[in-house]
Design a protein around this nucleic acid. Structure first.
Lengths: 218, 218
DNA sequence: TATTAATTAAGTAATTATACTTAATTTAGT
DNA sequence: ACTAAATTAAGTATAATTACTTAATTAATA
């Protein structure tokens, strides 16, 4: 197995140096870059082939959780291990939601850090300590429970024909196919599609499907 | 502190008797009633001033989770501790969602049962064993919905880059925008998109979003 | 190191969608 | 019956996607 290439992100030089020192004599771990805040971390990651980002939660500008979110949103092939000086319930849950691969509480030892790094680098998950209680409390107090959305009255003033066309669009049909299905000109279907986009204020199909889903149109 | 008044619900007499025997020499615990299925449990609870329902998941008619749901729905002032002979992820999550105050796995000892009973009776929560991994896995796969969605190993053989492009496509980005974002040619983005469509065997964006959602790709 | 797999990117064409505008017909409501 | 709204459809242009092929350059793995 190859080396684990790590990027360190923490706003305290001392902390970074400390961690580097800890990892110095690990043959299979390599700190290839550092960042002192979230934005810098993003920049660094863009131009690196790091395997893993070891990131502190609390940082100026963009915090660790936001960095993790960004990474996951864009599907960058980097694992993320979040370090926290606080075992706040909030942060743990947020990190998990953001898609972090692991979470280490402040009390973590060197051994635990190494264990976590390896586990995560291999594609696993690592969450330190007894966070089940934290998770459960969050699980039960509704925060993690998806609220059921009430059926919103279509606020877009779609006409019947437009709804009809929308349904077909959402089935992946092309304007030509829609035209054939409804026995109208393909150009007419185009117009309807155009008007739909305008009314729903979207600029592409993806947004259209999202809005349609959200408002349960069609 | 007053006694803990318990109602036992389990379809096996033997199990009920066993638990009663276990609790017999506990001064502060009192089994005030029993039920052999879910419906009976509901009836019994209506006409009692029990503090806690100790209920098995698997029961004829109405199962333990449904009973818990009913109790929570109607806001009856009874704590609920769910007993499970199976440590299925499914049940744990469902129980928590239903609003159970505690969950005991089959491996639980007498000591653990007592601990759980006291904790729950006091208004706390008790979840046995290491269910944090269960919770996390359920927590992370999107909504904390108790739907049984197997952790389908992406059967499409998408490469890292392809997953990355997929994420951007699903954000409604055009090939040009994707190219700019990843600092590659728009033509390259086109190729990736083309390969994605082929691999996922879809013929338009709509199907792509559906498949991606279904398999939780990206 | 050898070899496969992944990423990159250009070429060529055909098809589709986007972004409007204008305007002729239906339909529907008052 | 009158009017507004809805449906129809064409014109014009640009942009984007689809559907391939070929092929060079990295990475990863055996």
């Amino acid at each position: 197995m190859s080396n684990i290439r790590i990027v360190l992100a923490d706003d305290h030089v001392l902390v970074r140096d400390g961690i580097k020192a800890l990892l110095e004599d690990e043959a299979d771990i390599e700190v290839i870059d550092e960042a002192s805040d979230g934005l810098e971390a993003i920049e660094v990651l863009k131009n690196s082939d790091a395997d893993l980002l070891l990131v502190d939660i609390r940082m100026p500008g963009m915090n660790g959780i936001e960095v993790v979110s960004k990474i996951r949103e864009n599907n960058w092939p980097v694992k993320t291990l979040v370090l926290s000086m606080h075992d706040s319930e909030e942060y743990v849950v947020q990190s998990i939601h953001a898609g972090a691969d692991g979470y280490l509480l402040k009390g973590a030892s060197k051994g635990e850090l190494l264990k976590a790094l390896h586990k995560v680098a291999e594609g696993g998950k690592y969450f330190s300590g007894d966070i089940s209680s934290i998770l459960i409390s969050n699980f039960t107090n509704g925060a993690a429970v998806p609220k059921k959305q009430e059926p919103v009255e279509d606020p877009f003033n779609l006409t019947k024909r437009e709804k009809q066309i929308l349904a077909l669009v959402l089935q992946g049909k092309s304007n030509k196919e829609i035209g054939e299905e409804l026995s109208i000109s393909k150009r007419t279907a185009e117009v309807h599609r155009f008007n739909l986009m305008k009314k729903l204020d979207v600029k592409n199909l993806i947004e259209l499907t999202n809005v349609a889903r959200e408002y349960q149109l069609a």
